[in-house]
Amino acid sequence: MLLRRMTPAVSVIAGLAVLGPACGSASNDADGTAAAATTRPGTIPGASKLDVSSLTDRQLAGQRVIATFRDTGTPGPQLRRLIRRGELAGVILFSREAPDIAAARRLADQLQAEARRSPLPLPLLVMIDQEGGDGRTTGARRLRDAPPRRSAAQMGAAGTATARASGREAGRALRRAGVNVNLAPVADVGRAGAALRREGRTFGSSVRAVGRLTAAFVTGQRSSGVASTLKHFPGFGAARVNTDDAPARIGLSTSTLRRVDEAAFVPGLKAGAKLVMLSNAVYPALDTLPATLSRRIAHTELRTRLRFGGVSVSDDLEATGLNRYGSPATRALRSARAGVDLVLLGRRASSAVAAHERLTAAVTDGRVPRAQAEAAARRVLALRSSLRAGG
């Protein structure tokens, strides 16, 4: 299905200017549904002639979906169809289908070619977890021939110059691979006995050190034109288990979460990180729901307290730790209703297709108010317009 009033929208998209860092600002209200004072309601900051009210329900829903094809090895006809119709925001790559830079580039080029022929010819978000390390830890180096060679723990021990250089090197390699969003760095403050500490995925145990190193990595990566993602908000550094494997409950007080864990994200945001990933853990001091399904966390803590105006993304909604919260499509709807911009389905291609259908129906029947869907689409399309399709 094509855009309504499509011709002017296409001509505007083709000439979109590169945007600045997607940092928080007072012009975003708590829902993100009020536009900046200099921008007409419905339009994208930095691209004021592109009106998201011209998007179909299916396209609005699609701007919130990140798909995988790790189960099929190649993007099948359903995902390609969504891309050609402007109904998919992006994809996430894993080692099976993209083991190295060359393989990732071939896939990225194919998918970006489909996107250029769509009614929304903006670069797709091509994401990967390229945190660093030897590849044996969860979420470490996905591309075996790309940096960073050091893990986050090793970068932390070496200092900010090394973290900055690692971010720059990772960004350059990802650009060659056709990847424009890195789901890194980890901004979590590691505690003794925590899963992330065991995996070497945290910069350290001090909020000051983690914040400083996170900002350094973001600064280096930004210089290469790759968008950074801070994770896992509001902080996963005290979890004893990984939510990919089991449910996690983090019993820190609201005061500690805000003073330590959330505070560690602030330097990375100031350094220009364009995305923040929500954790799949439960934080009883804040809500009974996992962060990625919690409006209080995705909206009140991230948007209102931290004044984040960029793109929020869920952790993998197919993670084992979320099994009690319904099907992946149900979780995607709950996450979107909580105010998360991008819902990430990281195990099966069919889950992203189902999530897209569920979100489309919810926009159509009002369970996801159109104003909220348009606000998310503005942020996602602004991000897409600010990135390049390849190196």
Results as ranks from 00 to 15, higher is better:
180 N>H: 12
249 R>M: 13
219 T>A: 11
159 G>K: 15
132 G>F: 04
98 A>N: 05
285 A>W: 02
248 A>D: 05
163 A>H: 09
60 L>M: 11
6 M>P: 12
183 L>T: 06
19 L>H: 13
209 A>V: 14
59 Q>I: 10
241 V>S: 09
63 Q>S: 15
349 A>L: 07
211 G>W: 03
151 S>H: 11
38 T>D: 14
371 A>K: 00
155 M>C: 15
105 R>S: 14
39 T>V: 15
280 N>C: 10
106 R>I: 09
264 A>W: 06
359 L>K: 05
200 G>C: 13
44 I>L: 11
305 R>Y: 09
250 I>C: 11
285 A>H: 01
170 A>R: 05
351 S>N: 04
229 T>W: 03
112 Q>G: 07
216 A>E: 03
95 S>W: 09
64 R>M: 15
30 A>Y: 08
115 A>Y: 01
247 P>Y: 07
360 T>F: 01
268 G>P: 01
213 L>R: 03
360 T>R: 00
361 A>G: 08
362 A>Q: 01
297 I>W: 00
190 G>T: 05
324 R>D: 14
248 A>I: 05
192 A>D: 08
227 A>L: 00
369 P>Q: 02
244 D>H: 05
15 G>W: 04
77 P>Y: 15
131 E>Q: 15
3 L>S: 07
206 S>G: 14
294 S>M: 03
376 A>I: 03
289 L>F: 05
142 R>N: 10
365 D>H: 12
8 P>A: 04
24 G>R: 05
141 R>A: 02
166 S>T: 08
339 G>D: 03
126 V>N: 02
114 E>C: 14
171 G>I: 07
142 R>M: 14
28 N>Y: 09
234 P>L: 11
277 M>K: 09
339 G>Y: 02
175 R>S: 11
76 G>F: 01
257 L>F: 05
305 R>L: 12
77 P>G: 09
54 S>L: 07
175 R>L: 11
302 L>C: 13
190 G>I: 05
202 T>S: 15
24 G>A: 10
122 L>F: 06
128 I>M: 00
30 A>N: 08
295 R>W: 00
28 N>R: 13
71 D>W: 08
10 V>M: 11
389 A>K: 07
269 L>T: 07
96 R>T: 10
193 G>E: 08
35 A>L: 11
315 D>C: 08
305 R>C: 09
247 P>M: 08
335 S>C: 08
28 N>E: 15
242 N>R: 10
267 P>N: 12
260 V>D: 04
288 T>G: 06
295 R>P: 02
136 R>T: 13
343 V>P: 00
324 R>V: 14
231 K>G: 07
96 R>W: 10
224 S>N: 09
